[in-house]
Nucleic acid binder design. Structure first.
Lengths: 192, 192
DNA sequence: TGACATTCCTAATATTGTTAGGTAATATCC
DNA sequence: GGATATTACCTAACAATATTAGGAATGTCA
């Protein structure tokens, strides 16, 4: 019996490929094993069962998302940075649907890593929004608003919730613009 | 063997109870059957397997949500109507977590009924937002923005995505306020 | 009472996840 | 280079759930 020479990385990639193509609920140990040409129990060498696999995907997805968001805002500030980060978020969810779905399950597989990554993402968002004037008590509100818009668009888009023949990217840009315009009208025009 | 005298309604309610208490992925035919004191195969009298059950929940959830949204806006207009509808949305998702989750699966169990209900909800949202001045081309953008905020807040809230000790209701109110302020700053102050 | 439909059941099968333990290939140590 | 330990993968077996087939008990109505 020749050895396949697998790694946790290979298992993860197989899982992601299935998740992106057929949805996260189609990611079964059987499907992964078939794809890797091994038997199901062999996967337990690399992954702690199905829960462990899901946790793996959640952590990887959050890392990936955090890196994309951080990269998107490099060298930008004000409105540009906010738009760039938002666009990166939507793009990530669209290009990695399975991974994005897995990353949403953080609550279910909560451990230190996912909590830490979530906080890092919130910090990133907080930084690009800090350029706008705001009452201190509104800072959390604003971060939550931005995250909700991003996640809401990504989620509805992924679930085919947008039926009208209008560009989702344009709608998203509009939403960010309205959000920033609202802030500026509340706190003054010399912002961003 | 005494007959239980069940109905589709009873099966649905059992499924909802489990979904709300333990999450939608815990809604198995086995769990429902146990709760109703019958055997699993007996459920096939009322429901077309697990896919049929999920479809049932999605339809029921959308109907429920549509009714709540319609009721919330009765007798109100302008900003009040928008806030009321948004609050009703968040409240629905919080008080009926399992049903809300099921309603999000519309895409997976898409049939005429779910499509019709989705459109009805979008129409309701469109009506309360129509009171605000806007370019015709921005109407879809605005409806999408509102839906994304509602769904984003509801979803992150449900997944324990909001860790800060700040009221989610206040954050949501803030978000709607900023959205409306953004519109008004773009299209004029004599709105709402 | 007897034909019939309905409701619920048992029995059987398929799929998936999981554990236990074995075998063969590979790496390590003298 | 050979003994030994580790590793990678396997088969076997079992549990849980979904589903289908078909049977028995219950209720309805002429």
């Amino acid at each position: 019996m020749a050895k396949a020479g697998l790694t946790e990385e290979a298992v993860r990639q197989a899982a992601i490929a299935i998740a992106d193509k057929k949805g996260l609920n189609q990611v079964t140990l059987k499907a992964i094993a078939d794809r890797l040409r091994i038997k199901t129990p062999s996967l337990y060498t690399y992954v702690d069962g199905l829960p462990g696999l899901n946790n793996l995907l959640a952590v990887y997805g959050l890392q990936y998302l955090r890196n994309e968001l951080a990269e998107a805002a490099v060298g930008l500030s004000g409105k540009d940075a906010v738009h760039a980060m938002g666009s990166a978020y939507i793009r990530f969810a669209r290009e990695n649907p399975g991974l994005y779905e897995a990353a949403q399950w953080v609550n279910k597989w909560q451990d230190e890593r996912t909590e830490k990554l979530s906080n890092e993402i919130i910090d990133l968002v907080g930084k690009v929004l800090a350029a706008f004037p705001q009452a201190e008590k509104d800072q959390t509100h604003l971060i939550r608003m931005f995250r909700s818009i991003c996640h809401g668009f990504a989620s509805l888009d992924r679930n085919h919730g947008f039926g009208m023949p209008v560009s989702v990217e344009e709608s998203f840009f509009f939403a960010i613009e309205m959000m920033l315009a609202g802030i500026q009208s509340k706190y003054g025009e010399n912002a961003g």
